[in-house]
Design a protein around this nucleic acid. Structure first.
Length: 840
RNA sequence: GGGCAAGUGGCGGAAUGGCAGACGCGCAGGUCUCAAAAACCUGUGAGCCGAAACGCUCGUGUGGGUUCGACUCCCACCUUGCCCACCA
């Protein structure tokens, strides 16, 4: 008998679609379950086996929950803006919208063929103007609340892609996409003030159920640090320099170092040739060069001094490129005894290295031979520090902050590793940033903020504290979306301007402020924009009045379970939490946090154990698997291959094993003709139902499949013991994992009836309905911790110590070991009895 | 340099305080067959005793500890993987 999954799967797909089995119903009185998987980029390569893994697993969860009586929302869509389509357009001249539509069509066909139970009526596509209208609307709200602002910043420029990259997109000094070393250059960019939400993004983590390592990564990325900003006055000058520190080592500060980009450096460069030359050299270096030069410290003395408040000593001010302008205040006080970089710098330029912290466990080396590096939380006792002497390192920090604040030398501040989000891209295939710049208003000092009733200024206060918004207006909300116009060339210009800058007709727009001719913003949004709120749109995907109706959002949000890649833990997850909190503050969404629970899947590696890539030739095509073995085999194998969160290599042999299993199930069900089941069959099945339910919730898909296999193995050798009713139960619990075969077998079991009913809308079997009496367990007898005997007893009896002791007393085997010895017993009901002899 | 995770048969892995190696792959033997494939059955951590059964010892990276009992908990170390990183 040859098992040909293809035809049957196609037939069932058609029926399921027709019956609309997977529709999520707004406001149903069933309990809701919103299960979300990250929507993919529809690439020309289509969906790969990695997608199949996490989709299959979460689909099994969604299907099970549906059978358990939940109103399940399990939606899907496309994160379709992105470089591949644009690069393809640059090469071929074909509009990205055309390739994107084609790719979506193909990828969607795959998802359907895999039997994923998405509610396709809620499909979203970030490149659809009806969708990005609301992405733009959110940007406008951010602008109006002062959370979107323009600033000239150093950006990472990829000379090959001709695009500015966010810091997050630069890996090892190289472009994330093409691995070309990036360069630094200045550009005016839109930024989102995510830092204003840093505290809430951090503290609200305590209320969500994210996997521990995911939480930790978010905490580290936000990187909250408490410290003190100390302002030093430059001797014989009106200038001052502010440093940030988290350590109480002021008695050991023997110099100051400032970044090449620092204001005071720029000022000195005008008059000091050495400084000028150093700055030029340093700023021309690419990020990559700076990193690769690593530990070799270079610097130049400015010729200026400041006075160390606490020691009264004159200390020199240096410029060095190991100090980064974007971190802290762009200036540090050098405490060479207790910081690796300061120590190397002091060694090279022969600056004094005093010790102000001692190691309570004893110092091995002289401080000029080796620094004693301490951070808050480390062990350390203050020395040579006057009133701090003898204090613990952390205690001394508190004392120092109080003391400096009291003297007016500095103030306590909280600093974050998190930076504001660079939101501009000079690309075509992205959402146009819906802003308008008017030269005339700029000249005359007008902006959206001081237009109208005057109430806007208070919103704008936050925005204007750091940038000059004059001349800027958001597009009128009635005019959204600002649609992408057709262009002739998709390539960004050499100057780094977006391709949109060439579309003169589109550029020209009436200024909302003064009515004269103004110019549209030509930058587009980054990839992260559309994906920052898509889970809201699924709740109400066709709304043309709002991004989604609040009542529907109240019903569906928060997402109960969100699964996605570990690589999105710091960026996408943080960005979408930020937007969600912002929209919560506006009253647009009903909850503070978007996702109740977040999990992550592991990668599927090639058979050689390495990441799949075209160039290595180790890519497994899921379509090939489906064509040859059927979708159920693909699904079940990807669940079975190993722990969900772990990276696993593809193995054709293991996959064959799963295929064999499915064939066995089919045969056993088809040849079964018993009407009654044995007691053992019943309790085994009851145990299986419980196990599958628990394993799917705990994401232990591999052991869930193994449990199905164990049952089938038992059935195979006890064929007379399984009756029709139990076969039906088995088919039902298999349905979430192998939906096609389960449906086929269920229909055969039901026979021809007037009313066709899918297995996937049947109630999930409960232990009660399967009559789980008479269950046996193995009780282990140990003597001094070693296994000496096993009893097969009924589950209830296994909990009775007297009964077990009696059995033990009768056992010859055990008797051999305890003969003539006194012992006491440790009894664990249902599991083990350990006889501990007195001198054993 | 920092953070996180993980080390178990020939391989992927199971067991998270109570029978170590579930389940699958692979391998060996067998049934069916003219033969092969498929399918099915049996065995499969290492070692010892033995004709066999029964039995015994060792065994989850290394060393220590807690416990009646440790792959599981604690301490130290070694190794690997991933993420972050001149973060003041």
């Amino acid at each position: 008998m040859v098992f040909k999954p293809g035809e049957i799967e196609l037939k069932l797909t058609m029926i399921w679609r027709e019956k609309k089995l997977y529709r999520a119903v707004n406001y149903s009185n069933k309990p809701k379950a919103y299960i979300l998987i990250e929507f993919p980029y529809p690439s020309g390569e289509r969906l790969h086996v990695g997608h199949a893994r996490s989709y299959s697993c979460l689909d099994a969860v969604a299907r099970k929950k549906r059978m358990q009586g939940f109103n399940v929302l399990f939606p899907f869509g496309w994160d379709a803006f992105g470089l591949p389509a644009e690069n393809y357009a640059v090469k071929t001249g074909i509009h990205p919208a055309i390739t994107t539509a084609e790719n979506i069509k193909n990828s969607k066909a795959q998802a359907i063929a895999w039997g994923l139970s998405f509610d396709w009526s809620r499909e979203v596509n970030t490149t659809d103007p009806d969708y990005y209208r609301w992405t733009q609307w959110i940007f406008v709200q951010l602008f109006k609340r002062g959370l979107a602002y323009k600033d000239v910043i150093m950006v990472n420029w990829c000379p090959s892609c001709r695009i500015n990259l966010a810091n997050e997109e630069v890996i090892d000094g190289k472009c994330e996409r093409c691995s070309t070393p990036t360069l630094r250059r200045k550009q005016s960019q839109w930024l989102l003030r995510i830092t204003r939400y840093a505290d809430r993004l951090l503290s609200d983590l305590s209320g969500v159920d994210y996997r521990e390592d995911i939480k930790r990564q978010q905490v580290n990325w936000i990187g909250k640090k408490e410290g003190i900003e100390i302002t030093y006055k430059v001797v014989d000058s009106d200038d001052d320099i502010t440093v940030f520190t988290t350590t109480p080592v002021n008695f050991g500060a023997t110099f100051l170092v400032i970044a090449p980009e620092h204001q005071f450096t720029q000022k000195m460069a005008k008059t000091n040739k050495e400084v000028r030359e150093y700055v030029e050299k340093a700023t021309n270096k690419s990020e990559r060069e700076r990193i690769s030069e690593g530990k070799i410290k270079t610097g130049v003395f400015t010729g200026k001094y400041v006075t160390n408040h606490i020691t009264g000593e004159k200390i020199p001010v240096w410029v060095a490129d190991f100090v980064l302008a974007t971190i802290g205040t762009g200036a540090v006080q050098g405490c060479p005894g207790h910081d690796q970089r300061d120590w190397e710098f002091a060694k090279k330029y022969e600056l004094p290295i005093p010790r102000v912290v001692s190691n309570p466990d004893g110092d091995a080396k002289d401080i000029t031979e080796e620094p004693y590096v301490v951070h808050i939380g480390d062990k350390g006792v203050m020395v040579n520090s006057d009133f701090l002497n003898g204090m613990d390192f952390s205690e001394a920090m508190n004392k120092t902050m109080d003391y400096f604040e009291g003297k007016g030398w500095g103030k306590r501040v909280v600093d974050y590793h998190l930076r504001d989000w660079v939101f501009s891209r000079q690309h075509y295939w992205g959402e146009p940033i819906p802003m308008i710049y008017c030269e005339r208003c700029a000249r005359e000092g007008r902006s959206w903020f001081d237009d109208g009733s005057g109430g806007r200024g208070s919103y704008g206060g936050g925005g204007q504290e750091k940038w000059n918004s004059v001349g800027w207006y958001p597009a009128d909300e009635k005019d959204l979306p600002v649609k992408l116009p057709p262009v002739e060339k998709y390539q960004p210009s050499e100057t780094g301007e977006s391709p949109l800058a060439q579309v003169t007709e589109w550029l020209k727009v009436k200024c909302p402020g003064c009515g004269s001719i103004a110019r549209r913003e030509t930058d587009t949004m980054p990839n992260w924009a559309g994906s920052s709120w898509y889970f809201m749109r699924y709740c109400d995907p066709h709304n043309d009045q709002k991004l989604a109706d609040l009542k529907k959002l109240k019903y569906w949000l928060p997402v109960d379970w969100y699964n996605g890649g570990m690589e999105h833990t710091t960026l996408h997850l943080l960005y979408s939490r930020f937007w969600h909190k912002f929209l919560f503050d506006l009253g647009v969404v009903p909850t503070e946090e978007p996702y109740t629970k977040r999990t992550s899947h592991g990668m599927v590696l090639g058979p050689d154990g390495r990441k799949m890539s075209k160039s290595r030739g180790n890519v497994i095509n899921p379509d090939e698997v489906v064509a040859k073995y059927g979708a159920d085999t693909l699904r079940l194998y990807e669940m079975f291959m190993g722990p969900f969160e772990q990276a696993i290599s593809w193995s054709w042999e293991s996959m064959e094993g799963v295929y064999r299993f499915l064939k066995r199930v089919r045969r056993l069900v088809n040849i079964n003709s018993n009407s009654n089941s044995s007691q053992e069959a019943k309790w085994r099945l009851a145990r299986l139902v419980e196990k599958i339910d628990k394993d799917l919730e705990a994401m232990k898909f591999n052991t869930a499949v193994a449990a199905l296999m164990t049952w089938i193995n038992w059935w195979g050798s006890h064929r007379d013991e399984v009756g029709k009713k139990e076969v039906e139960v088995f088919v039902k619990i298999m349905a979430p994992m192998a939906p096609f075969l389960a449906e086929e077998l269920y229909q055969r079991l039901m026979g021809k009836t007037d009313k066709w009913e899918s297995v996937h809308v049947q109630a999930w079997p409960t232990v009660k309905t399967t009559e789980a009496a008479g269950r046996k367990v193995t009780l282990v007898v140990q003597v001094d911790g070693r296994v000496r005997e096993k009893f097969e007893v009924e589950a209830e009896k296994a909990a009775e110590q007297d009964y077990i002791e009696e059995l033990v007393g009768k056992s010859e085997k055990v008797g051999k070991y305890i003969a003539g010895k006194k012992y006491r017993s440790v009894f664990v009901p249902g599991k083990v009895i350990n006889l501990v002899t007195e001198n054993g």
